[in-house]
Nucleic acid binder design. Structure first.
Lengths: 231, 231
DNA sequence: TTTAATAGTGTTTATTATACACTAACACTA
DNA sequence: TAGTGTTAGTGTATAATAAACACTATTAAA
């Protein structure tokens, strides 16, 4: 490689981690330990290590700051690289968004992570429609992530990442309603989702529910798969 | 900022420059002057300068390697950051795609850029559906850019960037047909595009065409504007 | 056995997309 | 100046998709 006649910007990976808790779509944020924006909530992020890809770094941030091991959905969102976004200097952020089951988060959240003193602040979940003032341009990032998440729900199977292996149709619909922020028609939703051919009925039945038991469905694949255009 | 305990990856901005020439969708590529992939066609790209954003770098590459000054459409595509994509070391590429009028390109292409000796190889246009073997992961980047370009045409006004201020409906349609790679129905196209409410008829008329003169239209705005969901 | 609660199911209407063919207006030429 | 070639411009019928809407079924609990 030619002599470097410039100074590489710093590169971070920041992840917008969505989950549903108590029927509300929430984002996981940490409190910043250092200036700038000391004490402000911020997206969990890490600097890229040598030879580490952004996706690997995002997974590392996910693991180390939230305890989420795997199973969620994670994809690149956008790269934010304005020279003004970090007062300390030029820092590029490759951003990701993740969708994970709350139960995967809660364990670590409840216990509070062991190394909370070392700059790894206690992560908390914040409702996306009541976000506090955030560090850097992180609010903008979350808003973009939310648009993308909603768009993805329309033509992919990503919702599998916040559902258990076997789920009732009503649980599926509830997840959509919470993320889109509006009620959906039961019959139309069922028709449309079935026509996507992403799920199949199983022989499982959900009992003990004080009402009519529900047939349980499962996703044909619990790997990300897309139906139409775009990536 | 904390002491940096890692080595920043190099960051480049690479741009997929689309244009239509002789009724064919083409991409502008340069021949690499150095190893690796010496002599292979590659996307025009530059390393980010200190405090330079990716978009600024992409514009710089566009200007310096193609002579395009402005007027085209340019947006971030994706960030490619596998550690294996560049054999020299970890290099992150923030990629962009551009859509520009051929006449803006051709001037410089014809003359051949003044500083062609200094690693700035003569840029050439290649049909997107007959690409040669490319350097790095640049083929993959172009394929993604093409998907994105087509998707964007569906719900934005980006096509303005390869049309003159005043244009006939048939010119508009032809641009779509070339980019999508298939014929479109004249009446349906007209109906649908008008319903998008992006253009308006003018009093201009295209004459001297050996056939019935065409009313000319113009875009209400020649700035990027989006209709629905997504960015 | 009655009640409360959620599961499950079809049809009608409106909207949007598709398929398809002829007349209009000009330039050119014989 | 009539005729021909060439592209502009227009509407309707049909198919596909989306939206609106209400009742019966099955269980647990009282």
């Amino acid at each position: 490689m030619k002599k470097i006649i410039y100074e590489s910007p710093y590169v971070t990976a920041d992840t917008v981690i969505f989950t549903i808790q108590d029927g509300v779509l929430k984002v996981l944020l940490i409190k910043r330990a250092d200036v700038p924006f000391k004490g402000s909530p911020a997206l969990p992020g890490v600097f890229l290590l040598k030879n580490e890809s952004g996706l690997e770094a995002a997974k590392r941030a996910l693991r180390s700051k939230t305890g989420v091991q795997a199973g969620g959905y994670l994809e690149q969102l956008y790269t934010f690289d304005s020279r003004f976004r970090d007062p300390r200097g030029h820092t590029i952020s490759i951003t990701y968004f993740a969708l994970v089951e709350e139960k995967n988060l809660k364990i670590r959240l409840g216990k509070n992570l062991p190394n909370r003193q070392a700059g790894i602040q206690s992560p908390k979940l914040y409702p996306v429609n009541k976000l506090p003032r955030l560090a850097f341009d992180h609010k903008e990032i979350i808003e973009l992530a939310l648009l993308r998440l909603r768009a993805k729900l329309e033509y992919t199977n990503v919702v599998y990442s916040i559902l258990q292996k076997f789920f009732a149709f009503s649980e599926l619909q509830k997840a959509y309603e919470i993320i889109f922020g509006r009620k959906l028609d039961k019959r139309n939703f069922r028709k449309k989702f079935l026509s996507l051919d992403l799920i199949r009925p199983t022989k499982q039945i959900l009992r003990g529910t004080r009402s009519r038991p529900a047939k349980l469905y499962e996703f044909k694949s619990r790997k990300p798969s897309s139906l139409k255009k775009f990536f």
